[in-house]
Amino acid sequence: MGALLAMLKKHGVLPGFSITLGFTLTYLSLIVLVPLSATVLKSATLGWDGFWTVITAPRVLASYKLTFGAALAGACINAVFGLLVAWVLVRYDFFGKKLVDAFVDLPFALPTAVAGIALATLYSSKGWIGQIFTPLGIKIAYTPLGVILALTFIGLPFVVRTVQPILEDFETELEEAAASLGANRWQTFQKVILPTLLPALLTGFALAFARAVGEYGSVIFVAGNIPMVSEITPLLIITKLEQYDYAGATALAVSMLIVSFGLLLAINGLQRWSQLRRA
């Protein structure tokens, strides 16, 4: 380890390797590792059986399904439409393009509670958009559909902003080469453009997904929070906290943490694989 550090030191152009590494580790510990381990420690007070009972209660299981399912659905929708938005923003010039480009970041800036209230108002059965769907028998607000809607809303910027720079750097020569070799538009997109964008698209997808899993503010307003139907796990954690059940709350948090970590790891693996193929 000492030899490794010495080696890294020698090859650096900028001085201060040890001080920056030290700072990074301390900072990460204070901001991320210490709170997370405190969470794990607190939940450990339940004992294994207690922990298991809490995290596998039927109401909790239903909330997992909704939280991860809706986050996944939202991230998938964002992957498709975020790509489309990025494409339009990079490839075409139109009036008001700068404005549209700025709109993309709004979900970042808007307090999520505001977004939730706005969505609930618009999509409730009496709302401007909701009343179009009511005759069709589709309820959006206060159902799992509303949760997916909110999570799609907050995740949009991630895919657009990760794909955009890659698309801007994409050499049009590659498309021309494909066309001169006889490929039609769909083949060019599918075989040449999409594989190039895949790593960035996966990154955007992972970010949107991670953000959606932890989202609380916007969802509780539009979800209706009906137990077993439209209740998300973060809400259950808050509920437990309000009942002074700290150990139970942290147990749920830990279980979410583990699942999220596993999923992100899988996505990262996928990303590495798609990058390795281009060596």
Binding site: L174, E176, A178, K191, V192, P195, T196
Partner: peptide
């Protein structure tokens, strides 16, 4: 044939 090859990197 392009100056910068335009090979498909993937």
């Amino acid at each position: 044939v392009f100056q910068h090859y335009a090979l498909f990197r993937h």
